[in-house]
Amino acid sequence: MADQEKDDDQPLLMAEGLGKSYGRLIACRDVSFALYPGEVLAIVGESGSGKSTLLQLLSAQLAPSAGRVSYRMRDGVMRDLASLGEAERRFLFRTDWGYVHQDPAQGLRMAVSAGANVGERLMAVGWNHYGRIRDTASSWLERVEIDIARIDDAPRTYSGGMRQRLQIARNLVTGPLLVFMDEPTGGLDVSVQARLLDLMRNLVSELGLAAIVVTHDLAVARLLSHRVMVMKGGRVIETGLTDQVLDDPREPYTQLLVSSILPA
């Protein structure tokens, strides 16, 4: 327990002076922050604010033009993501990290069964006992509230909300420490969103996951995150405790964002 606490005092991921430009176009600039184990950070801002670029930089899917991202590997050493070999990067993606896409079709294999979608991640980390893989896959389907009777169906036969829940199961089955989420509730009906949010919120707190969630929906940020970064024009313009930024916004743009929410 004492070790655990000591561990939690060390950042899991750090961004330092991170930026990305495409020629003269600056997509994101000078982003620095530290993310600690178990912490959920929301990145909010309108389309074009640079939040998705930032998520891709943080998850090593895009190389930065400036600055760096480092991540604490299982041996406790902070490593610059740019310095990782291909095998180490793949290891991160298969085990330590999850990535939930807005469009489940990007994160799932639509033509293979739901069970295989979940089981595949396990096989990639060396599981080879068919029975155990299937058992684990079904228990994960249950956790994300998918009827076990649908385990052999392909996700293309699933509704949007089910697909998103399946994508979450596929990501969490290997016990990652950090999950990146890109507009995880985008494109879903409001009632489906509420269910998904509640599910994600519980899973994140039960598993003690750290997460970085990109969303344009402030309600999602409020429900899921501890901390929030507000982006505009590629910069982080305001950052702090989520309820503080949303209830007592300081920057003009944040005040505009908060005041633009339609009352339900």
Binding site: G240, L241, D243, Q244, D247, D248, R250
Partner: peptide, 9 residues
């Protein structure tokens, strides 16, 4: 009250 809770800066 909100300042004491850290809800308001």
């Amino acid at each position: 009250l909100k300042m004491i809770f850290g809800n308001y800066r």
